[in-house]
């Protein structure tokens, strides 16, 4: 179990490292403000990546016969939560591009906490397959 925990933490750290670099790069990408860059990135990279993640994940689960496993069902709950959060963030980004109003500071804090908690749970469930 110690190895699985270390592996999960390693993957989570790599995800956060990469995501952090992408955010910093996007903030510097547009002289007219970050919203336009973020909107383009969300449309052409993040959303297709989410669809590919679902399609490839479900294909792998079907090929490996994991649909009767408890860990996969638990993981799917967190993946659904992540997808819903992405939908909310993407909608807020589009609204922000149109009207200029976005999420409050407290809402951002809550979203970031939920994202990191879901990521940790998903990675641990996949790596350790505990039940």
């Amino acid at each position: 179990m110690a190895y699985e925990l270390a592996k999960s933490a390693h993957i989570v750290a790599a995800f956060l490292w990469f995501a952090g670099m992408v955010v910093v790069a996007l903030l510097h990408a547009s002289a007219n403000g970050a919203v336009a860059s973020l909107l383009t990135w969300d449309r052409y990279v993040t959303t297709p990546a989410m669809i590919a993640t679902w399609a490839l994940g479900l294909t792998m689960a079907s090929m490996a016969g994991w649909f009767s496993d408890g860990w996969l069902m638990a993981k799917l709950v967190f993946v659904l939560a992540l997808s819903a959060i992405h939908g909310v963030l993407s909608g807020c980004l589009r609204r922000s591009a149109g009207k200029g109003d976005g999420l409050s500071r407290n809402a951002v804090r809550l979203v970031l906490s939920a994202l990191i908690a879901s990521l940790c749970a998903i990675v641990f469930l996949v790596v350790a397959k505990p039940f």
Partner: peptide, 22 residues
């Protein structure tokens, strides 16, 4: 079956996004 499942998920996601967008 899987194709419809994937399109259904994408539609549900689009509903959430449109609701969040207003």
């Amino acid at each position: 079956g899987p194709l419809h499942g994937l399109v259904f998920l994408a539609f549900c996601w689009a509903i959430v996004r449109s609701w969040s967008e207003g």
